[in-house]
């Protein structure tokens, strides 16, 4: 009986040690939940939002960063993809049908073997076959709109003009991630939703950290106001520091909300 108890205690201790090490000896990483199936409102989207959506898909549902990252060296980095597109299209190894950067990037996602970057082909294929899957099928199954969003993102990070168009066709694909929020109805709602009053004196708000906007329409035109919201560092108001206003409102506001806000601010005279 004593032997039995000793053996049981020893076994339990061993199992306890392994369980303890797994719980406390290594970092507990919570894997991301499975991608949700939602619908998105493309019609109300600005290009900045579209680029932001592309970035989100690039690192999320598209699982692009799994291979295209600086650590593993398993797939080429894509930050310059949009800028080298013309060079690739002229390469004798290119086997596709694209004629411009947008088509080339799209082709590289749905038919990756048409051009394999040297050193990144499947083993033994002499760089004629890519290990990358067709992202429009299988487990990734990106829709046309999602692929276009990634193209927009890649053009944006490449520092070239974003020429891909936001698809206008309604997306019925159930696998599309999205803007689940209903558009805000008035400029006051926009100001309240995005907490503009935390810094600015505008509408009924009395923020003091940013410029007073109660008469901004008399000093600035609509283009200036739009630019100031989308890219706050482009024109700094006197006495205010760089990066003091969030630069991601372009990725958060719907196009209709942005225009409504610009109209409202322009009317404050």
């Amino acid at each position: 009986m004593r032997t039995f108890a000793a053996v049981v205690a020893f076994s339990l201790f061993t199992i306890g040690f392994f369980a303890g090490f797994s719980n406390f000896g290594i970092p507990q990483i919570e894997p991301s939940p499975p991608p949700k199936e939602e619908a998105m409102n493309l019609a109300a989207m600005t290009m900045d939002q579209f680029v932001a959506l592309g970035e989100k898909i690039y690192g999320g549902k598209g699982t692009c960063t799994l291979c295209h990252n600086a650590v593993g060296g398993r797939a080429p980095l894509l930050d310059k993809m949009a800028t080298v597109a013309a060079e690739r299209l002229a390469d004798p190894r290119y086997k596709g049908k694209a004629t411009n950067a947008v088509e080339y990037i799209r082709e590289s996602m749905v038919a990756p073997s048409v051009y394999v970057v040297a050193g990144f082909g499947k083993a033994g294929s002499n760089d004629t076959e890519s290990p990358m899957p067709d992202v429009s099928k299988g487990g990734i199954s990106l829709s046309e709109a999602e692929i276009a969003a990634i193209i927009a993102y890649l053009q944006s990070v490449g520092g070239v003009e974003v020429t891909v168009e936001i698809p206008t066709v309604a997306q019925n694909d159930a696998n599309v991630p999205a803007q689940s929020r209903a558009p805000l109805a008035t400029a006051e709602e926009v100001i309240s939703h995005f907490a503009c009053g935390a810094c600015h004196k505008v509408a009924k708000e009395v923020g003091e950290l940013g410029p007073d906007l109660t008469k901004i329409g008399s000093a600035r035109d609509r283009d200036y106001l739009r630019r100031a919201i989308l890219d706050p560092n482009a024109d700094l108001a006197e006495g205010f520091e760089l990066d003091s206003m969030p630069a991601d409102f372009g990725g958060q506001m719907l196009a209709s909300e942005l225009e409504m806000l610009v109209d409202y601010l322009a009317s404050l005279k």
Partner: peptide, 17 residues
């Protein structure tokens, strides 16, 4: 459908063992 964390998996494995 979510993937459990390693600690959670280790606990299930330990109970099974």
């Amino acid at each position: 459908a979510f993937t459990p964390s390693l600690g959670y998996a280790a606990n299930v494995v330990s109970v099974g063992a």
